[in-house]
Amino acid sequence: MKNEKNISILKEMAESVRICMFTTFSKDDEFGSRPMGTAKIEEDGSLWFFTNEYSLKSKEVSKENNVLLAYSDPGNNTYLTVKGVAELVDDRVRKEAYFSPFIKAWFPDGIDDPRLILIKVVPESAEYWDASASKIVVLFSTLKALVTGDTPDLGKHDTMKF
């Protein structure tokens, strides 16, 4: 039951933003980040992305598959980071199901583009901040904390395991 709740929170927050900073790590403690659009979040919580099979990102995923996804919606004061394990997947059925006109801008030949491959990220843990109250409420809470010496109540914050 807890996992279903965590997946629901993950889906709601990530789907509202769609674009994340997709960070890969190497064994040399180097990392690379790039913006990527989430193509799909499945019911089990796995996140799917389209990419070029021959890109540096694909090479990084195939060598060291731990990734961090960072979703940010400053307008709604919501933030989500997801730690997970990534793998390259060549699945024609999923390509057809998840492909969109937006993806066509990078892959004009559509699902038949020989460079097109999917990245599947299985989440292991996530952390989120949700202060989706209006900016006035957040400002008031911050000012009140300054006056009273308390910590401002800026909404929900939690860590989740999958």
Results as ranks from 00 to 15, higher is better:
Lys40His: 11
Trp48Gln: 07
Glu42Cys: 10
Thr24Asp: 01
Thr38Glu: 04
Thr38Pro: 02
Ser46Gln: 06
Phe31Asp: 09
Pro35Met: 13
Ser26Cys: 03
Ser33Leu: 13
Asn52Arg: 08
Gly37Glu: 09
Gly45Arg: 00
Ser26Trp: 04
Met36Leu: 13
Thr24Pro: 00
Trp48His: 06
Gly37Gln: 07
Asp28Arg: 13
Arg34Gln: 15
Phe31Pro: 06
Phe25Ser: 03
Trp48Ile: 08
Glu43Gln: 11
Ile19His: 12
Phe31Glu: 12
Ser46Arg: 10
Thr38Ile: 10
Ile19Cys: 11
Ser46Ile: 05
Phe31Val: 08
Glu43Gly: 07
Thr38His: 04
Arg34Trp: 13
Phe50Asp: 03
Ile19Leu: 14
Cys20Glu: 08
Thr51Leu: 07
Ile19Lys: 09
Leu47Ile: 15
Met36Ile: 08
Asp44Gly: 02
Leu47His: 06
Asp44Gln: 04
Ser46Gly: 06
Phe25Val: 01
Phe50Ser: 01
Ile41Gln: 05
Thr24Asn: 04
Gly45Val: 02
Ser33Ala: 15
Gly32Pro: 05
Phe50Pro: 01
Ser33Gln: 15
Gly32His: 15
Met36Trp: 08
Ala39Asn: 04
Phe22Val: 00
Gly45Asn: 01
Met21Thr: 14
Lys40Val: 05
Glu53Ile: 07
Phe25Gly: 01
Cys20Arg: 08
Ile41Ala: 08
Trp48Phe: 10
Glu43Asn: 12
Phe25Asp: 00
Thr38Leu: 09
Met36Ser: 09
Leu47Phe: 11
Gly45His: 00
Gly32Asp: 14
Asp29His: 12
Ser26His: 03
Gly45Met: 01
Asp29Ile: 09
Glu43Tyr: 05
Met21Asp: 13
Ala39Glu: 03
Phe31Ile: 08
Glu43Trp: 04
Gly32Asn: 15
Leu47Lys: 06
